[in-house]
Nucleic acid binder design. Structure first.
Lengths: 237, 237
DNA sequence: ATAAGCTATTTGGTAATACCAATTTTTGGG
DNA sequence: CCCAAAAATTGGTATTACCAAATAGCTTAT
């Protein structure tokens, strides 16, 4: 029984996910270089102290995220970074502590900058009646939290996440759907809202909300851009 | 031996991927409804004529793409569509023939519209010297193909894919990397270039290329938007 | 020197078994 | 008759052992 095993077996999640996370972090951190061949299945089984089945499931998981590629006889290789699926929520979670947090959040904002204004514009045009009703409901909650005497950070993050996710879900475009989950993951793991966010952001959100409800896509796009610019100004870099 | 088995065993890809594809397509087409519980592992093993291990690997693969979620005793459930990762290349491939092709391409263009202009702008600012050299090389090839006596559609698609992928890789932002693969997958599976594309598009690509090389991000963004508008005008819807 | 074929290695796939956790059913007391 | 505790059932989790397929690199024969 080696140390690696204990640390893995003690945790909660299913075994192969834990093994996958360990390997993923070694890849993401560069400890296992791109194009290098990782140890054979049996070696890794010994190293992690798990069965071959569990390890194989882990390798399959990483293969599906574009981190590994297996071939008989050759072994399992780390594929080039260009093929890693950074738009996978689980992979994003695994990034925790790997790269500089501020830089990572800044890059994510670079993605939001492209996606969200357009998503808001599409939502203004395509949101269903049910989605508009739900958005109203969520916005009401945002107001309540922003106007409360004591600012509840956890609640704000939750509602903020729901607000932006619902917009992605209201675009009527399947390719925008995943961004809701990515945003949720980022908010939950990397982005820490300050206590002043509620009061200052509520007007920006109101602009987005009103434009979408009014079906004014240009105004929605603009309001989203403005909001993201404000978010950017708060970032350390 | 039932029919399902034969059709799967005869194919090329690894077994669990084939099983995963079968199940995925049933989910994507709505044949297995959202939130429904799929048959138990042993039942599915019989149905597909594969071992429990192979089926489990398939389920794991689909879980990682957000299509399924397993819990002991409860069984394996199809999760809601909002959680499906439509930004996964393999999932996109599996969509073939499921939804209306023109509509699907149109929606994809809706994504490109958001992402690519910003990617071009970032690339203009952040591309390394090596990346700029590589982009030059690719653009040269585009010109050659466009100016050739007979238009080679396969070559054009290949080079066009490389051109756009390289731009995503040159943004210096990890969240833009996966779009290169998504675009490659879409070009290979869904988007069919007409023979007139080469001659008409080359000037648009030149605008993008020049702006990036000149480090003019605003011009790059605009050139990309113009190009995508031209692409849109060619779509049937 | 070269091409055909062999061999060892590494992943791919199957089957049997034990285990654990959640739900459902049974059972027994009030 | 009701309710709660305990037992059986069910379905995913994990391990083990074994065989098949693929292939890089060596060997051997021409």
């Amino acid at each position: 029984m080696n140390g690696d095993f204990e640390s893995i077996a003690g945790s909660k999640r299913s075994l192969h996910v834990q093994v996958a996370r360990e390997i993923a972090r070694k890849i993401l951190s560069g400890q296992l270089p791109q194009n290098s061949v990782i140890p054979s299945e049996v070696d890794l089984c010994e190293q992690f102290g798990v069965s071959r089945t569990a390890l194989r499931e882990a390798v399959k998981l990483l293969t599906s995220k574009g981190l590994l590629k297996s071939r008989p006889k050759v072994g399992t290789k780390v594929v080039e970074r260009a093929y890693w699926n950074f738009l996978d929520s689980q992979l994003i979670e695994w990034m925790d502590g790997i790269s500089d947090n501020d830089e990572f959040c800044s890059q994510f904002l670079g993605l939001r900058n492209a996606i969200e204004p357009e998503a808001c514009a599409l939502a203004a045009r395509n949101a269903t009646v049910e989605q508009r009703m739900k958005l109203s409901e969520i916005f009401e909650q945002m107001c309540d939290i922003a106007n409360a005497d004591v600012f509840d950070q956890a609640k704000w993050t939750s509602v903020d996440t729901q607000f932006h996710s619902l917009i992605f879900n209201s675009t009527g475009n399947v390719f925008y759907l995943p961004f809701g989950n990515i945003l949720t993951t980022m908010f939950a793991n990397f982005i820490h809202h300050s206590s002043t966010d509620g009061s200052t952001c509520i007007e920006e959100h109101r602009q987005i909300y009103s434009a979408i409800m009014a079906g004014n896509s240009d105004k929605a796009r603009l309001a989203s851009s403005t909001h993201l610019q404000a978010v950017k100004d708060k970032l350390p870099i």
